[in-house]
Design a protein around this nucleic acid. Structure first.
Ligand SMILES: [Mn+2]
Ligand SMILES: [Mn+2]
Ligand SMILES: [Mn+2]
Ligand SMILES: [Mn+2]
Lengths: 218, 218
DNA sequence: TGGCTCCTTTTGGTTAGTCAAAAGTTTACT
DNA sequence: AGTAAACTTTTGACTAACCAAAAGGAGCCA
């Protein structure tokens, strides 16, 4: 049986590089997993032993085909659970990440299949992240960072690339929900800010924050 | 944080003696948990250290007030999850036990509260077992074992005290669902069997099997 | 009072996962 | 080429949980 710990390592490697092209640094992996670099090294060696990652010591680590497949399925479980918690149980989109972080390791494929059905075979989670299919395919969309939009653009919010509960609360409070139409009012590269209008309300964001929001042309 | 392992030990102690009156033998606990007696002994010592059980070496172990409280909450989570899987996700009542065995350790109180609400504050799980309240109260019913019923009795099935999937499948296939009205047709203590009629269909059960079914007078 | 059987506990050892700190590599800069 | 900074790996140690097998207690029966 594959442990939750291993699933978390594989999943984070996937999230750090969904195509599994780059060599991920041990330290970077350790950071997102909140473990020491030494712990990451030793787990990486174990994973390499099992053929789940390829390790080039001192250069980095990369998922193998097999490791990536496992990771994609963990991500599928995570995202379906998140959407389920929001759509069926009425939870807040800022609360569901931590919950799904645990549930992703214990819900069976049967339960996931049933949730998927009940939700109508959704393609994206509550934060706009794609839900891999049971076969491991990942629906692609061409999105643009809000921080790259220009004055006058009319776009719809498509993804929030920040799982932080406080950020999600802020976004929600300001009407920045998935699908919301917004217009870029001002953009000031010197002041590092962007002003958008959503449902009549103006919101000013720093470009760093705007860089965590992705939008679609309307 | 309290581990799944500890939760399982406490829960099984509770299930072996819901009132926590008796001294449970180490070997009995070990058996239901599928561990060796030695493993159970060492965990019991740990639990005693934490004040969750009282241990009289060579005589047995018993939950403390604190340990019983924790156990009751694990049982609450288990049973709400089971009912949720059956009523909302449409799973079979024979499949949900193993699933709930894992989920009981990771679903948050918030999720349980929401499931409870969605289910309309149910009092019993899919197998007729009582669901403890958030305060730890356990609804009592006065039930009778099917094996003690007499010819001519008209009763309703109220509980199946056997989590075995094959047994539950058999029961379901023969219309022995919770709430089903049945009449006791024959009873033969010599042959160790009882014949009941449910929805026109006659079913013969050994008295041992009938002893795992509890009924309510109608 | 022994002795026997059935449990329980103890002992010694394993595995997964972790950390702190020492040791080793790579790279970039002088 | 030599050195220092930044990173990675190794080492040694710890905890939770488990097992197999040896040792220890309780109750029973002669
Ligand atoms: Mn996780
Ligand atoms: Mn998400
Ligand atoms: Mn369990
Ligand atoms: Mn049940």
């Amino acid at each position: 049986m594959i442990s939750s710990t291993v699933e978390n390592y594989l999943k984070e490697l996937f999230l750090l590089d969904p195509r599994s092209e780059k060599q991920i640094a041990t330290g970077e992996l350790a950071k997102v997993l909140c473990v020491t670099p030494g712990s990451a090294t030793s787990m990486i060696k174990t994973l390499a032993q099992s053929g789940l990652v390829e390790h080039r010591p001192h250069y980095g680590v990369k998922l193998t085909e097999q490791g990536r497949n496992l990771a994609v399925h963990v991500v599928r479980r995570h995202r379906i659970v998140e959407l389920f918690l929001v759509n069926i149980l009425g939870m807040d989109w800022g609360e569901v990440h931590d919950e799904a972080e645990q549930l992703e390791h214990v819900v069976s494929d049967d339960v996931i299949t049933r949730m998927d059905e009940l939700l109508g075979h959704p393609t994206h989670d509550p934060h706009g992240d794609p839900i891999p299919t049971p076969e491991g395919e990942i629906p692609e969309r061409s999105l643009q960072l809000l921080s790259f939009c220009n004055e006058g653009d009319n776009v719809a919010i498509a993804r929030i690339g920040n799982q932080d509960a406080a950020f999600l609360k802020f976004a929600e409070d300001n009407g920045l929900l998935l699908g919301a139409s917004i217009e870029i009012k001002h953009r000031n590269d010197i002041a590092d800010s962007i002003t958008i209008q959503s449902q009549g309300k103006e919101v000013v964001l720093g470009l760093a924050a705007a860089g965590r929001i992705e939008v679609e042309d309307v």
